[in-house]
């Protein structure tokens, strides 16, 4: 039989132990977070040379950052759909940046001509094969076979292919090997679901933006 003493037992020493443990765990978490924040702050301070800036300058920038971030967070607090979209788009931007750094460094090391040789021999034919066999069971395996065969072929004919590629400007090579296939795939995807006109608009816009972007930044 439970007596009143048994039922109120947790209000005694045990309760003190429980909350002390909870506090200790919270303290450990807070310490870790603070240590990381301090490290980031010191490094950022030094890297951005904020020591040279006038306090008012820092204050203005901090206010702007605070207002925009706070505004977005406050709106996200009310709207669940907005919140989820905001989190995914932040992730997409960070992921895109990481992907972009990897891609740029890869292309830097590969050099435009070698990249164009491999892409022209394997990626472009693969896209064509992929699109030419829309409902075939062998779609994936055929595309993969073309990629592999093209890669092997490009390795053997690398000298010829790079000398052909060298006649074109690097930006043109990137447009031909990346923007054009991408635009074709996007056109295909949009056309199937939304319609031909919109697909042409989106893919054409991508192509024009790509060409303009590549030539204008020169």
């Amino acid at each position: 039989m439970a007596t009143v003493d048994d039922l109120t037992f947790t209000r005694g020493f045990s309760a003190v132990k429980g909350s002390a443990f909870r506090l200790a765990c919270f303290g450990a978490t807070a310490f870790g977070l603070l240590a990381l924040a301090a490290l980031l702050l010191i490094v950022t301070w030094g890297a951005l040379g904020l020591g040279a800036a006038h306090p008012v300058w820092i204050l203005v920038v901090l206010t702007a950052v605070g207002v925009s971030t706070g505004g977005v967070l406050a709106y996200a607090g009310q709207d669940e759909t907005f919140k989820l979209a905001a989190i995914s788009s932040t992730a997409a931007i960070i992921g895109g940046a990481v992907l972009g750094v990897f891609a740029v460094i890869f292309l830097l090391i590969a050099t435009p001509n070698v990249w164009a040789a491999y892409a022209g021999a394997s990626i472009l034919p693969a896209v064509v094969v992929f699109l030419a066999l829309p409902r075939s069971r062998y779609r994936i395996s055929a595309t993969a076979a073309v990629v592999v065969a093209g890669g092997i072929g490009a390795t053997f004919a690398l000298g010829t292919l790079t000398s052909i590629a060298a006649t074109a400007k690097p930006w043109l090579l990137y447009v031909a090997t990346i923007v054009v296939p991408l635009a074709v795939l996007v056109w295909r995807g949009v056309e199937r679901t939304v319609g031909r006109r919109q697909a042409t608009l989106v893919a054409g816009g991508l192509l024009v933006a790509g060409v303009l972007g590549a030539t204008r930044t020169r």
Binding site: S89, A91, A92, I93, G95, G96, A97, L99, G100, V101, F102, A103, V104, L107, L108, P112, P170, W171, L173, Y174, V175, I178, V179, L182, G210, G213, A214, T215, R216, T217, R218
Partner: peptide
């Protein structure tokens, strides 16, 4: 080079 800027921007915006 301009081509690499193009590639970076494409990669940046692709997931989005």
């Amino acid at each position: 080079t301009p081509g690499l800027v193009l590639v970076f921007v494409l990669c940046l915006l692709f997931p989005l």
